[in-house]
Amino acid sequence: MKKAKIKILSNYSLKKPYHKLSAYSDYISKLAKPGQFVHIKCSDNNTPLLRRPFSIYSVSKEKGTFEILYEVLGEGTKLLSQKKRENFLDIIGPIGSGFSYNVPFANSHLPILVAGGIGVAPLVFLAERLAKSKIPACQGKAAGRKNQKSKILVLIGTKTKSLILCKHEFKKLGCDVKIATEDGSLGFRGIVTDLLRKELITHNSSLITGIYSCGPRPMLQEVSKIAKQHKIKCQVSLEELIACGVGVCLGCAVNTKSGYKLVCKDGPVFNSDEIIWG
């Protein structure tokens, strides 16, 4: 983890209210792991006062850049959205534990990524690393079943069609992408956790290596419950207001079975069965 002033390569609106920002940082592009975040000072003064955490969405080691996706929600993200190419960005990162995905990943084994809204951001990065890790694992136990082709399954949920992000990025990585919209404007009509339930009926849960999820807390709680019912390991990326980002202020505590843990230092990714949702 380092603090740095880095240059912005691009920062533009993808579709309302979502933005994509790319910036130069050799350090982050080399070290970042899926699920980690950067802590950004969005204002040049004390309004708003605190930094804002953003999951890393992609890195390019070749170009020495990384990208974040963000939703313009409040004063901080509004100021961030106004920053231009060549402007400097005050960041601390990469921060946090990230997803752990060292489980053997064979062709016949299926990871499921469940995203709610802007929660797609760290999961694109994860899907990319998972897709890469597929090849060596094929030589393992499942090699004999190579023909049983299965893909990374990605479930994205939003209120409506126009808010869906990264569908094509996931497809390019070879993922099987399914959409849930609350208004039924695309794909499954309903919330993404109901889509997950439906998918788990058709897939043999013993072949599922894990569920990885990022989105609003109630969604994550539900994903966690479903994973438990199906006895599938599940990791969730939690969000809290984060002040220091380095584990000193103890502000971003979440209640777990082993006491309070910090989203910034122990997380943001946790095994879902550790969390006391309450």
């Binding site: 207001l241 202020c249 971003c252």
Partner: peptide
């Protein structure tokens, strides 16, 4: 320590209850 949420941002300040 105390029950989360433990911090809140306010104009030019922050509240904490660690």
């Amino acid at each position: 320590g105390n029950k989360p949420p433990r911090i809140a941002e306010t104009p030019q300040g922050m509240l904490n209850s660690i």
